[in-house]
Design a protein around this nucleic acid. Structure first.
Lengths: 339, 339
DNA sequence: CTGAAAGCGCTTACAG
DNA sequence: CTGAAAGCGCTTACAG
């Protein structure tokens, strides 16, 4: 009863292992009676094939991998759904893997490709700037990176990417706040560890201020991380400085919600006292009260486009591409014109 | 350059594959010079070992698997963290896998155990009532199920579980509402697909009403699923019935937030017009405004206890156990006494 | 400290 | 439609 393998099943059924393998893989060239008999035995003995053995032997699979950076990120969840949708539509199957924060993304990616003989891989987030181009190319398995920038020029021909223009989107957010008459605009952004995204969004903030002839005041900037309470704490710090803040740009919705809660908890109003704009458009923003104004990243498109590019490379032998999707300012109830 | 394997590396280094394997596995019995040379070659050629081959050959690993039901559930995220913490503390490593909603949980669990030669597995959610005890036992890899009930008596000796008393916890939530003077108490609960949890929580609701001599009115019950908008929609339906509702029990925080948003969107107040109590105590609830009163599931304890039991079985050869953890009503700002 | 050999559980041409 | 044989890329006793 213990850990039967394909040989055991074959013996019990009185056939060769190869025949068992054929029914396992739904091959058409098996006699129906034989198939039924083997199926029945498998069921009766609770036979479960060993995937490692299968992966080892297989030349290529029909599966596309998805490698997600960070164990818990509501922003990625809708992207994953749209990726899965598209992969199924193409008749492939998907395998979802998570990647710890401290792991080397490109190495994990290659490991996964080799282990599961993937046809292609889409990575959500992660750092793909430090890589060996030849290694990637010799793999001949296309990788597309969604929602992370590939900065290194030379790497851009070895990978594809689907991103947004972070600086421009942040610019729009802050420009919107300025156009509403705000001048004392705080920012909660992510710090050092965030290699590019936080920096780009902060830069967009500064450029928008510049456009409106508002001088950047470092006291209005607080560093947070991707959590509610870092947004909450940062907002309290900002408020305690008594700088006459009337608006806030948070570089992620999660932090924006924490910040909004800090404002509301002090008995102040959003947006009457402080206007807040977030970034991402995760589902929670529309259920928060007041509903948060934010920069919508086209989560569904990011997923769909990533898969589309992957299949272009796979099936039409196209080259790696880098596309930038449009964001959109979604005006809800957390921002208000002043004066 | 393409897909080097251990033999290639061995050839390049002028050693036997077994020696390469030894350095790969950090075995002490390798000459330092040899080790360095091989390491350098691996690095230079970007050698990445194939895990399938490794898993196939290995007798047993030092890794504990975690199998999570459903791709995105904020309730599980803190549990996962606490599981990981505990596993690391024990000196084991963890592998995290997600399971689609429509998959057979026990089958996926066994597949995973076999494929990765796991030492143990903890499952978060899922249905483990329909299983072959002998199969599980012959596996001799302990499985502990967290946050799902094992109902079938006979299965309870083949698996461990860590749960809460759903009926009692729901009873307390509604009893609290009653003690605040509420009589017209709506409920948004999960439907058919939810095999046990929704039913138990609904039953707790009914028992609390009974205790307070309030007759159960089916018009006050709406079915939702585990999403914001189903909570939102269900609350609107309830409100539109004009039943004089003064309070609501939602069987998950996600639905409670959706419901609260529906109330607030109508210009009504939580808790002045409608009191709301949720279930789970996910992080969102304290950042919603007003902060939501809810039933706290001890997420950290669920994780820690699951791993503790697993290691008791693994290292002390103890038997499978079923423990029920205490929940706690966390009174925040969404409930109010009336009259 | 190192190598040769067997084998983990499958799949895949090949032959019949 | 079915079987015998080779081999995927590793690890692990065993021998030296």
């Amino acid at each position: 009863m213990q850990n039967l393998n394909i040989k055991d099943i074959a013996k019990i059924a009185g056939v060769a292992p190869s025949t068992v393998s054929r029914v396992l893989n739904n091959r058409p060239d098996v006699n129906e009676d034989t198939r039924e008999k083997i199926l029945k035995i498998m069921d009766e003995y609770n036979y479960i094939p060993n995937n490692s053995a299968r992966n080892l032997k297989i030349i290529e699979s029909n599966t596309i991998g998805v490698l997600v950076k960070g164990i818990y990120n509501p922003f990625f969840s809708k992207i994953i759904q749209s990726i899965e949708e598209k992969i199924r539509e193409k008749g492939y199957s998907m395998t979802l893997n998570y990647n710890y924060d401290d792991s080397n993304d490109i190495e994990t990616a290659i490991e996964l490709i080799k282990e599961k003989r993937l046809k292609g891989l889409v990575c959500l987030g992660g750092n793909f700037d430090d890589l060996d181009i030849e290694q990637i190319q010799s793999l001949s398995t296309p990788i597309v990176v969604a929602s992370s920038n590939i900065i290194e020029k030379k790497n851009r021909k070895a990978l594809s990417s689907v991103t947004i223009d972070n600086e421009k989107a942040a610019f729009e957010a802050v420009d919107y706040l300025c156009s509403l008459g705000h001048e004392k605009i705080g920012i909660i952004t992510t710090g050092e560890s965030d290699r590019s995204i936080g920096r780009l969004r902060t830069s967009g903030y500064k450029k928008a201020l510049e456009k409106h002839c508002i001088e950047f005041d470092p006291k209005l900037l607080e560093i947070g991380e991707y959590t509610f309470d870092s947004g909450y704490d940062a907002m309290n710090k900002l408020l305690d400085k008594n700088l006459g803040l009337t608006a806030l740009f948070a570089t992620s919705d999660i932090m924006a919600i924490g910040a909004a809660k800090a404002v509301l908890s002090k008995g102040l109003s959003v947006p009457d006292d402080i206007s807040i704009i977030g970034f991402d458009d995760i589902e929670y923003t529309s259920y928060f009260h007041p509903s948060l104004t934010t920069i919508k990243q086209p989560q569904e498109d990011i997923g769909h486009e990533s898969v589309r590019i992957l299949f272009e490379i796979l099936q039409e032998k196209k080259k790696h591409r880098h596309i930038i999707l449009e964001t959109e300012l979604v005006a809800r109830d957390s921002c208000k014109a002043i004066k």
